[in-house]
């Protein structure tokens, strides 16, 4: 009897653990299934090469490029902000700040990641954009630049926290070895700690990239939701995610081309994220082999 009860409990707990895999399968499965009908209307060539994305217009065009350029642009700007700031902050926290202070500063920094994204949207639209307009007078009210910068600030803690964890995990005997031959803190940090923590720092960057690619509200609020094939950050544009929000806000009959288009957009986003993750894995593998 007792044996049976134990077996039942174990099975229930296993099902709970396995359910997390079902989530992944569910996401991938639904995105694929709902996207397939889309490609009965649109050829893959048109999807990948057409320069306009207007699936809800009278004569609809289905080129993903404008959404990709928007996504690419915001992500690049965000990373230009987050990677230097996050990495330098991590090195500072790990190598210069006393452990007692680090214990206090790290959680405060992590609060940056806890702020709801819609609040960041407000900040980008009504604080950062007006501020930037003082420097760049012909900056549009909705623009990619401000959204990208704010997303960058938002993901600083993802980059810095995980990088700091990786640097903190570098054994102290390596640091001592470096100091023992007369290296400075900065030299130790750049020549020993950061290379030794490279694998963990890469994971931090990849998570940061994933966040930036998938960030929705900041771009939906501050970048203007207009698909725009441009690499000019002062113009409005739409990302894949912003497009999904825009369509979802309207009335959306199940099975309509609009409905299918957001799944295609979502699937593209997922594939994009996956590519970066695989790239990250490859990078780490390559670096580990070199050692």
């Amino acid at each position: 009897m007792r044996r049976l009860k134990e077996r039942v409990i174990e099975t229930v707990l296993f099902l709970a653990a396995a359910s997390s895999v079902l989530v992944t399968i569910g996401i991938v499965g639904i995105l694929v299934v709902e996207s397939i009908p889309f490609f009965e209307h649109v050829t893959l060539k048109e999807f990948l090469t057409d320069t306009e994305w207007t699936p809800l217009f009278e004569n609809a065009r289905y080129g993903i490029l404008p959404l990709l350029s928007g996504t690419f642009l915001t992500t690049v700007i965000a990373l230009l902000v987050a990677i230097p700031l996050g990495t330098v902050t991590a090195a500072f926290l790990s190598e210069y700040v006393r452990p007692a202070w680090r214990e206090v500063l790290k959680p405060i920094l992590e609060l940056l990641a806890a702020v709801p994204t819609v609040v960041y949207g407000y900040f980008a639209l009504l604080f950062v954009t007006p501020l930037l307009q003082k420097i760049i007078p012909d900056l549009s009210g909705f623009n990619v630049l401000s959204a990208g910068i704010v997303i960058g600030m938002m993901i600083v803690p993802y980059v810095s926290s995980l990088s700091e964890d990786a640097m903190g995990a570098v054994p102290s005997h390596l640091r001592e070895a470096s100091f023992a031959v007369g290296a400075s803190r900065m030299q130790t940090s750049f020549r020993v700690v950061i290379p030794a923590a490279f694998s963990g720092i890469t994971s931090a960057y990849i998570l940061g990239i994933s966040r930036a690619l998938g960030e929705t509200m900041v771009v939906a609020i501050a970048a203007g939701m207009q698909p725009n094939l441009t690499l000019n950050p002062t113009e409005p544009a739409a990302t894949i995610t912003a497009f999904i929000v825009q369509v979802s806000l309207g009335d959306l009959p199940h099975g309509s081309i609009g409905y299918q288009s957001i799944y295609v957009a979502g699937l593209s986003l997922l594939v994009l994220t996956l590519c970066f993750n695989i790239f990250g894995l490859w990078l780490r593998k390559k670096f580990q082999e070199k050692e």
């Binding site: 054994p171 005997h173 390596l174 001592e176 070895a177 470096s178 023992a180 031959v181 020993v192 290379p195 030794a196 050692e291």
Partner: peptide, 12 residues
Amino acid sequence: GMVFQKPNPFPK
């Protein structure tokens, strides 16, 4: 100069 208890070469 100093040499430590456990060999601690850099991963280089």
